[in-house]
Design a protein around this nucleic acid. Structure first.
Lengths: 84, 84, 84, 84
DNA sequence: CTGCCATTTTACCGGC
DNA sequence: GCCGGTAAAATGGCAG
């Protein structure tokens, strides 16, 4: 590259990669935090496996709720009803 | 449970689950951020697939370095040498 | 199912499952073999943990080599070069 | 090492590692075979996920059966009954 | 929409 | 005998 030092292509690419890597580190840290919570959960005598299932079920329920909401809005829109 | 509302078992469990859920939301947000970076990457004309592979390779290299370090420490420990 | 015994659907499924189970038995036997080698390793005075780490490191190196090869091929493909 | 070429320590270690690696390759091949069967399973219109569960359940059942058998033999032995 | 990759979950193995 | 960590399996998600 000729315009040396002025955000050359390679430099930009490197910056992108480093941004991604920083985000992934953050993600890994949070994953650690979650693991720590499960350690606590276990230490309190709960069965971590069951708690995991609870979390998953709640997520599913949330998802379903949103689906339901979307469906409702679709219907509402279809009959010209403005929910907002 | 008699002492209703005062950190009863169910309450504690609920708090654990909510903590986990908040962390998972954070994680999801970061995952979104990463996706966004890839959108930028693509918009700058880079091949996202290649960038992903680069990121993965760098991660592998890091991982290998750690494994080698671990092996070294195992060796050290095996011969009774305290590295710290 | 009416045409009993003539490769009915259930029969085919059963055959699939049995094939899988036979493969898994084979796999379990090999896992045993590996364990036996580690017993020997230990009996010869080696530290099994170190040997395990060595095996893992060599595998990682192999894996990295393949990833690099894949990246190379992606590059080649990106510039319209057909390596094959 | 002085007694060069006569199964020196390093040589023996290398042989152990190579034996392990060969076994692990074999294991990997079988794992591939199993994956292939699941591809077939899917191609025949079965739900691979369900089939996996069936395989797992059968394994559990087998395991339980053996436990039961062991228990029976323990009881038999306890009352001086020779099952064989 | 299919296949692949990352994450998650389960099973295993060794150490205490 | 359990518990901790490590490897394998499985599921889910995302890119092509």
């Amino acid at each position: 590259m000729s315009d040396a030092g002025h955000n050359s292509s390679d430099e930009r690419l490197r910056l992108f990669i480093e941004r991604i890597e920083r985000f992934e580190e953050d993600k890994a840290i949070i994953a650690e935090d979650i693991k720590d919570v499960y350690v606590e959960v276990k230490a309190m005598g709960y069965d971590a496996k069951i708690v995991r299932q609870l979390v998953r079920l709640r997520k599913l329920a949330e998802h379903d709720r949103k689906e339901q909401q979307a469906l409702l809005e679709t219907y509402a829109s279809a009959i010209g009803l403005d929910l907002i």
